[in-house]
Design a protein around this nucleic acid. Structure first.
Lengths: 340, 340
DNA sequence: ATGAAAGCGCTAACAC
DNA sequence: GTGTTAGCGCTTTCAT
């Protein structure tokens, strides 16, 4: 491994002082264009890349962002990571990932985790982003933090999210407009903010079409596959079963699919099933699930952008953003048939 | 954010020089026990944690390990990460995760990725750990690397793995000993080394029970769900269909399950299905899959241990390890019934 | 608009 | 067994 070029190498090659190189690298003002170009050329030729360690040691920033999560969904976390990582690279930042055991969460271990890598900012995924203890510790440490898809308390600080309520409304409307008069809903975990928003969207849609909310058509799940199966079975065993079931996430929708199968119902001929999230499993299950796709990577990338901007205090960024979702129609839904 | 304690603070508090503190922190010899304890106590009281940046800048180690992967299975990568992260923390190391687009892999981008964060060592997951280009670049950079579950070329360098061949043999034996005379096999992707090992294990088992390998009972898949479904259908449509199908991974086993369902076969009454990997989906599919569990976290943790030991040249470590697998019996397999 | 000098917190090399 | 000194590559502060 050949030794890496340093700021001194670049400076002498460009015939300037290291401070000038520093200015150029950090996009600071007060450098003549001609000098700037010369420095840039020298840096490029030498393959110069500033040393993170030296920068962190000398300066106030660490050029590190931490992604903290306790999300049980591996697929979700993996997508978040990918999106965050990519934008971090583009911005010259490093990302450390920090799985948190929220069951054993205490102030001390949190502070230890924060102290370990002195990040410039923290990205929080749900449901950790709604954890009071975590938020308090981070705020007390005075660290920049950006929440991804927080449940509520939007005023508390920067966040990025999608409009789950609007998306759930749109999906429900699609089902109704396919001719399904009875669209049942399987709610998500009570503690999870997205669960409430998605249910509200379902209710919005019924209202918009002049249908009234039938509480016996709403089952309480917990976002897990098993709860979806149980809720699905309960709903389908009713005297007048629904012809469409909209579950608040894909895992529960897969559970509904399993229940339908056990009861000998054909999907989508006898029953339409829709999910939410567009997890990888939504595509591989049979029939493939109609669902709502969230731009998970984009959410993470946006969170990184905001965190970096906030940490470097570079001008004013919009500290929060709401991104669009997309409905993905697949084979698990169909217009209501005469059989249904 | 209150300023962090430095080595100087600890030194003055303990009444020694900073070098002595350094010795204690780095577990170097030549410190009296009484002094060591005094230093440790002072460090503890001050909440001292050495600055990564300063260490990296001054020393030869960076205290950073890189986890490079291009594995399409999010669940696998997530497990690997968890295991690696945990051990890294215990060893005072940091982990940076580095998703690689192996389709667009070239020497230049690889070197850039390696240069970006000057890690002390690299952990490679399959199939990246078998990528000649990647290995060459890393070796050329003179970096310590540990491969997780490499296909072959075990002499090339340190690795950790499980004995897939032995595990597949064991699973096949279980199926045979349940009374299944015709156990079919769905092979994994040709380029993936584990695929070959698992098939070999299947063949070993047949041989061990004096059965001869019937090539028409072996289907070629690619580790994907769809290939499993296709292979399953082909196998089950044979004049004399197998009563058990062992797929080389869970995704394909789920495909086989889907095929059986479409053909109206009950699992496990008409057909036993087994997979490999114990992915989360193996538990949530219906019926839950009998499969082989790999100690993925342990593999990652072992890889980290080896990498750190190698990077710090601390004594001699066994540079490679083979960990045990475990067979998980679930409802997708049953003794051969009269119906089968 | 540019530069000189002083550290940041630690390890390395050598004293004692 | 313990301490001293000189950097590592950068940012910061203050001159010019």
């Amino acid at each position: 491994l050949t030794k890496r070029a340093t700021i001194t190498d670049v400076a002498s090659k460009a015939g300037v002082s290291i401070k000038t190189v520093s200015r150029v690298i950090n996009r600071e003002p007060n450098v003549r264009d001609s000098v700037r170009e010369r420095v840039l050329a020298a840096a490029d030729e030498l393959g110069y890349a500033p040393s993170l360690s030296a920068r962190a040691l000398a300066g106030t920033r660490s050029y590190v962002l931490a992604l903290m999560f306790d999300n049980p969904s591996l697929a979700y976390v993996a997508e978040i990571q990918l999106g965050a990582l990519q934008r971090c690279r583009e911005l010259g930042y490093h990302l450390i990932v920090d799985p948190i055991d929220s069951a054993a969460l205490d102030r001390e271990s949190l502070e230890a985790a924060l102290a370990a890598a002195r990040p410039d900012g923290i990205i929080l995924t749900p449901p950790l982003c709604d954890n009071a203890l975590a938020l308090e510790a981070i705020e007390a440490a005075g660290l920049v933090h950006v929440r991804i898809a927080p449940s509520g308390d939007l005023a508390r600080g920067p966040y990025v999210r999608t409009d789950d309520r609007a998306a759930a409304k749109e999906m429900t409307l699609k089902l109704i407009d396919m001719g399904h008069e009875t669209v049942a809903f399987v709610r998500g975990h009570r503690a999870h903010g997205a669960a409430a928003a998605r249910f509200d969207g379902y209710a919005d849609a019924l209202k918009a079409r002049g249908l009234k909310l039938d509480k016996t058509l709403v089952a309480q799940g917990d976002f897990g596959f098993d709860s979806g199966a149980a809720c699905g079975e309960a709903l389908l065993k009713r005297p007048k079963p629904p012809t469409a079931i909209f579950a608040a996430n894909d895992d529960m929708a897969r559970g509904v699919l399993a229940a339908a199968e056990r009861l000998g119902l054909a999907v989508p001929e006898d029953l339409s099933v829709a999910g939410f999230d567009d997890t990888p499993a939504a595509r591989t299950v049979w029939p493939p699930l109609t669902t709502v796709r969230q731009p998970i990577r984009d959410l993470a990338a946006a969170a990184v952008e905001i965190a970096v901007a906030l940490a470097s205090q570079s001008g004013d960024v919009e500290p929060s953003r709401t991104l669009d979702t997309e409905i993905v129609m697949r084979a698990s839904t169909a217009p209501r048939s005469s059989r249904g």
